[in-house]
Design a protein around this nucleic acid. Structure first.
Lengths: 191, 191
DNA sequence: TCCATGAGTGCAGTGTAGTGAAACTAATTT
DNA sequence: AAATTAGTTTCACTACACTGCACTCATGGA
């Protein structure tokens, strides 16, 4: 991502937020403690603000810093056929399919998991903030997070923070199938 | 929001991302163009990086800048039993079940939908930024967004922007069941 | 017409982000 | 032992973000 894209997004966001609140440059300057001249430069994308400056501006506008640096993209409808999906074989009768995923503005992945009886999978510790949400289509899942185990039955659901190591296990006697949603940073071993 | 909170979040995020990719400081420095000494300071939250620096680091790690500055609050493990879920009956043989949901920092809901043949559901126009992601467990879904229809077969998946009116329809002859994820990254920017 | 308000520019001065290199730990490894 | 690798600190130096103030240029009332 080009740094100018970010500063441009910041420019748009700051200006839009300020306009939305009908604040003048002087008001925002007084409220944020950032000089008016600097605000002009930020709103024109002609500077390279520090986190400190950005934080003060975001606070004065009542929004999060994350929103300030969000690049608005144009979403479209994307259909993924079953034949095009990536499948990660994991054992005999076990596999994980990445159904569909996005990476902006919020990273989301939708997975279809199958675990044969006795099988398990150890998930990596995702970056802080990562959450996983899943529902059991058939069978019974034993989820271990934070050193504690939770049993989720068929049609049950669970949401948890995945920034720690965690394990999915099929300790039952029937095949296990569940759909999982992963949100937050993704773990593609890119380039 | 305290600037130190942001720099602390950046520190955690950068360190977690780098560790997850098993990159050394030298590798990240070479890839990002940010000096190794600076990276150490960033990862310790002892500096006030500029957007330019942040962008280069985020790029080298393959994540968005917005994610770098996100403050992660840690939700606990929450298991929802099938008996406790809220079901919205929708017709004969049709129903939507809210499996599990969160509302901070981003709204995330997991739904289990069933539509009998001939049934349909019109979704409201969600706030800007809302996305829906779903996969078909059985049957065939006809999704209409932006005035255009898309047919998604069993095991297929689709992601689309839900800030416009949209319709789920079962135009097939078999029962339709699909799991849907609704995400709304931003709360309404007012007050 | 004068006056007020808001947006934007220009500039000297200051603080500090950021660099590059060197040197120091503390684990591995040969 | 010696050599390697990764993390951390220190230091001098440069670049520029940021401030504060004083301007100009609009628009819009009284």
């Amino acid at each position: 991502m080009d740094p100018e894209t970010i500063t441009g997004a910041i420019a748009n966001n700051v200006r839009a937020q300020r306009a939305h609140r009908q604040m003048t440059l002087d008001e925002l300057a007084a409220r944020s403690g950032v000089s008016r001249g600097m605000l002009v430069q930020v709103e024109q994308g002609r500077t390279n603000p520090s986190i400190n400056t950005l934080t003060r501006i975001a606070d004065a506008l009542g929004v999060t810093v994350a929103r300030m640096v969000e690049v608005s993209d144009t979403p479209v409808v994307r259909v993924v056929n079953a034949a095009d999906m990536v499948t990660f074989p994991h054992g005999d009768g076990s596999a994980a399919r990445l159904l569909v995923g996005t990476d902006a503005p919020a990273i989301l992945e939708l997975w279809d998991w199958r675990l044969a009886p006795g099988e398990h999978h150890d998930g990596d510790a995702h970056p802080p903030g990562t959450r996983e949400m899943l529902t059991i289509l058939e069978g019974e899942l034993t989820l271990t997070v934070y050193g504690r185990s939770h049993v989720v039955g068929t049609d049950g659901a669970v949401v948890f923070s995945a920034d720690r190591p965690h394990r999915y296990a099929n300790e039952g006697e029937r095949p296990l199938r569940f759909v999982m949603v992963v949100t937050e940073p993704r773990e593609t071993p890119d380039h």
